[in-house]
């Protein structure tokens, strides 16, 4: 599953990596003492965005190599036309995966997730399909992407966080009243 913005994400990733290497180098040379926190966080974020390079995982043994190429070049309409021309009986797991990728690029996320699921079910052993399916299954459940921390603590855990939130909100209301903001 190739995000339509994957190239931009990859570019950012490159910058981060370069900065990280620079820091490592400096550190080895004993220049300055950087804290050890922070890098990991930035990394995790972009890793999940680039889609862990799903597109790149693919081994080249593809029935629809030309369609894959079109999708990668963002020529979605052409790719879809070719894909829809494939007769029903020869629509295999890869067909569904590619259909899902097209939907995904277009922003039709629900259809995309349905197609990825189908591809995964037809060929559970394929890593590419599994990764795409699992990522969207996670998103569907939690409303954020795997590896992204911001806000996950609040909603992600199944424990009794709701109580904690309500308490915070009540405190917020009280705070507002005290400050005299609560007039309307």
């Amino acid at each position: 599953m190739d995000n339509p913005l994957a190239d931009i994400a990859a570019e950012k990733m490159k910058e981060i990596n370069a900065a990280y290497e620079q820091i490592q180098k400096d550190r080895k040379a004993g220049k300055t003492s950087y804290g050890n926190t922070g890098y990991g966080g930035a990394y995790a974020g972009y890793n999940s965005y680039g889609g862990n390079g799903y597109g790149g995982n693919y081994s080249g043994n593809s029935q629809f190599a030309d369609i894959r190429r079109l999708i990668q070049q963002n020529r979605i309409a052409e790719a879809e036309e070719l894909l829809d021309g494939v007769p029903e009986y020869s629509r295999n797991a890869e067909w569904y995966f590619l259909k899902g990728s097209i939907y995904y690029r277009r922003g039709w996320l629900s259809e995309a997730s349905r197609c990825f699921q189908r591809a995964y079910q037809m060929e559970p052993g394929n890593q590419e399909y599994a990764a795409a399916y699992q990522r969207m299954a996670y998103q569907q459940q939690y409303g954020s992407s795997p590896g992204r921390t911001s806000g996950t603590q609040i909603y992600g855990c199944p424990c009794d966080c709701c109580d904690c939130c309500t308490t915070l909100m009540c405190m917020d209301c009280i705070g507002d009243c005290l400050c005299g903001n609560g007039c309307c």
Binding site: N3, S48, Y49, G107, L109, S110, S113, M136, Y138, Q139, Q140, Q141, Y142, G143, S144, S145, R148, S150, G151
Partner: peptide, 10 residues
């Protein structure tokens, strides 16, 4: 909606 907010977050 969850899919949408997740993609927006990315």
């Amino acid at each position: 909606l969850n899919l949408t907010t997740a993609e927006l977050g990315d």
